[in-house]
Amino acid sequence: MIAVAVVDAETPGNVGTIARSMKNFGLSELLLVDPPELDPDGEAYGFAGQAREDILPAARTVSFDHLVEHYHTVACTAVPNEDANNHVRYPAVTPSDLAASLQDVDGDVCVVFGRERVGLYNDELARCDEICSIPASADYPVLNLGQAATIVLYELRELTVERNQHPDSLHTTAEAAAVEGLHDEFGRFLDAIEHTEEKQAKTRRMFRRLLGRARPTGRETRTMRGLLRQARQRIERGSD
């Protein structure tokens, strides 16, 4: 299942536009983080088309923590003219590659869109499993929120509108909570080896991106977590 989340939208009309695009391309679960008021007689419902009958009124308000804890998260963001060593926004897949990237994810996926003016904050991007960015002119790479969502959701149509045409995959991705447990253990491991404090956030982001692309199975996740725990415990005993 693929859900869509909109974080801290300022304009109700953009929420309605995204709901309409979801209806167009076979998605139904809309999650809102810090949403504006959505008046049934206002522009959100006016822009939503037929989505005003089901998707928009059924939208759930959740926290950003909820997204990270319960979904394989894909953050959609502009990639400005930055060095590719910026591990907050890189590596990023394009919308045209996103469906292929997600087709083996058996757990729930959430595609996350951010604010109209500034998009998702860096600390939010750092907590997501994958980054998706729409290639655009370097002179003006930032798209309107509703436009960006429509482009991304269109490219996901083979997983939503045409999802029944895909054969079952033998790869079963670990549940989001299990992957988060592995991230927590990796953080404790970094503390145990006294990894430089100012480099820890960057290292953890790199590890999150790596796991996001690899999509480990439940068994792989448990094994890696166990290995990190054993290594950490040996280091801690040796330092006593």
Rank of each mutant, 00 (worst) to 15 (best):
S96Q: 14
A136Q: 10
I18Q: 11
L159S: 00
H171K: 06
D8H: 11
L145R: 12
V74T: 01
G26R: 03
V111M: 07
Q230F: 14
V62Q: 12
A59V: 07
V33M: 13
N24W: 07
S239H: 12
T223F: 07
V74D: 12
A214F: 09
E124Y: 02
C128A: 08
P95I: 03
A126V: 04
I18E: 04
A126C: 10
D83H: 14
R225K: 15
R52K: 14
V62E: 10
V15I: 04
A78C: 09
P40K: 00
L228H: 04
M206K: 11
V33A: 11
D191E: 14
V7P: 14
L102M: 06
L159V: 01
G238Q: 04
R219L: 11
T94R: 15
L31A: 07
E69A: 11
F25Y: 13
F186K: 13
L143G: 12
L98M: 12
G238Y: 02
P167W: 00
A178I: 00
V142Q: 07
T77V: 04
G226P: 01
L32M: 00
R127D: 03
H87S: 09
V161W: 08
V142H: 08
V152N: 13
Y45W: 02
A59C: 07
E162L: 13
R232A: 06
A92V: 03
F25P: 00
L210P: 05
P40L: 00
D240C: 06
T17R: 11
S137L: 13
R20F: 15
G114E: 01
V33N: 09
A84K: 12
L182D: 05
V15T: 06
V152W: 07
R237H: 15
L120A: 08
P40W: 00
V111A: 14
T196P: 15
Y90N: 13
A9C: 13
E180F: 03
R215T: 05
I235L: 11
N164W: 11
D139L: 14
R215W: 06
T196M: 03
A9S: 15
G16S: 07
K23R: 15
D240T: 03
A201E: 05
S101V: 06
R219M: 02
L38Y: 05
P80F: 03
R188V: 13
L125W: 07
C110S: 05
N164S: 15
G42N: 03
M1T: 05
L30Q: 10
V161M: 10
A59M: 10
S137C: 04
L27G: 02
V62K: 12
E175N: 01
S21Y: 07
N122G: 10
V4D: 01
L32C: 10
G226I: 06
R127Q: 15
G146N: 06
D39Q: 02
V7R: 15
M206C: 10
T172Q: 15
L227G: 04
H72C: 13
L102S: 10
G114S: 05
V111W: 09
V118A: 08
P35E: 02
L190I: 08
E185T: 07
A231F: 15
A214P: 02
L31P: 09
A19S: 09
N81C: 08
T160G: 01
N144E: 09
G16Q: 01
E116I: 14
A78M: 14
R205C: 09
G119C: 03
E194D: 13
E158A: 12
A3N: 04
V74E: 08
H72D: 08
